[in-house]
Design a binder for these strands. Structure first.
Length: 271
DNA sequence: AAGTTCCCCTGTTAGC
DNA sequence: TGCTAACAGGGGAACT
């Protein structure tokens, strides 16, 4: 499931492949992936140039010469940059035709992904991007006190708060377990019991883990064999998620559901 | 108002 | 062996 490091990896690969190309046509085979009116979406995108790829949290942002195409990969969204005779399988739901006669195919087995068009003026002041909290890999000017204010009144587990993208952006179910493990904090701890020092610990670990995961091109679990070649390596560095014993004290890891998500943690090492 | 549950989806796996 | 049911999960809507 793409989290911040995986989306950043995709952004870097697509930057190499797509910048400078025009989108000449779009074939939308599963319209539910498009937010808003399909024809408006097409009209806004077709015949635009891809100038740049940005990212905020898990949102991928195609900056066009006029407007922006937003893509959220959710669980299984993937982009394939391929020749125009590429075999279109049943999981490819959107096909962008490009000015160099190649294709950008969007494949999404579970169809959870979403596309959006925003004008450049509205990009960061309207949904979905205006809802996104601090992205630690982009913004160095955040106020830790402002973040703390958002969590200190919450009576939900700290893991659930960290998955809330409107506070800190980018964590998904894999990396949140890793961050809390490194910070020695039990994921069940209610957010209003977290101290400012512990929040600093969490933020520092988020930065370290995001940076390392991006260096390793993200995590590839569940045999994602993408022909795009974006196969990450960070799964080899995971310490608790999908693991059975604590790498530090060797005791058996606890597995519980928090916010409906499978959670791995060490009762001894995480307090 | 904050917190919880449901729903969208389909490939994989567990269970009978 | 073959079928069905449960499971996985990001995020938003609906509900409590």
């Amino acid at each position: 499931m793409p989290e911040l490091p995986e989306v950043e990896t995709v952004r870097r690969v697509l930057t190499e492949e797509l910048v400078g190309l025009d989108i000449t046509d779009i074939d939308i085979r599963y319209p539910n992936l498009i937010e808003g009116d399909i024809n408006e979406f097409k009209n806004n995108i077709i015949n635009k140039k891809i100038c740049k790829l940005d990212r905020l949290g898990k949102h991928l942002i195609f900056i066009l010469n006029d407007g922006a195409l937003l893509s959220h990969l959710r669980m299984e969204g993937k982009f394939f940059y391929v020749d125009n005779d590429f075999p279109i399988n049943k999981h490819i739901h959107v096909i962008f035709k490009l000015s160099n006669n190649k294709l950008l195919c969007y494949q999404d087995v579970r169809k959870f992904g979403r596309f959006n068009y925003r004008s450049l003026n509205d990009l960061y002041t309207t949904p979905p991007l205006n809802e996104v909290g601090v992205d630690l890999t982009i913004n160095n000017n955040y106020s830790i006190n402002d973040i703390y204010k958002k969590i200190i009144n919450k009576k939900i587990p700290i893991k659930a708060t960290l998955l809330d993208q409107s506070i800190l952006a980018g964590l998904g179910n894999i990396y949140v377990d890793e961050v809390l493990y490194e910070a020695h904090i039990n994921p069940n701890r209610l957010s209003n019991t977290i101290t400012l020092e512990e929040l600093e610990l969490i933020i520092n670990q988020m930065k370290i883990i995001f940076d390392n995961a991006i260096l390793n091109k993200g995590t590839t679990i569940k045999s994602y064999t993408s022909s795009l070649g974006v196969i990450g390596n960070y799964q080899n560095f995971l310490k608790v998620h999908t693991k059975s014993s604590c790498p530090c004290c060797k005791s058996t890891l606890t597995r519980v559901k928090i916010k409906g998500r499978m959670t791995y943690y060490c009762e001894k090492c995480q307090r």
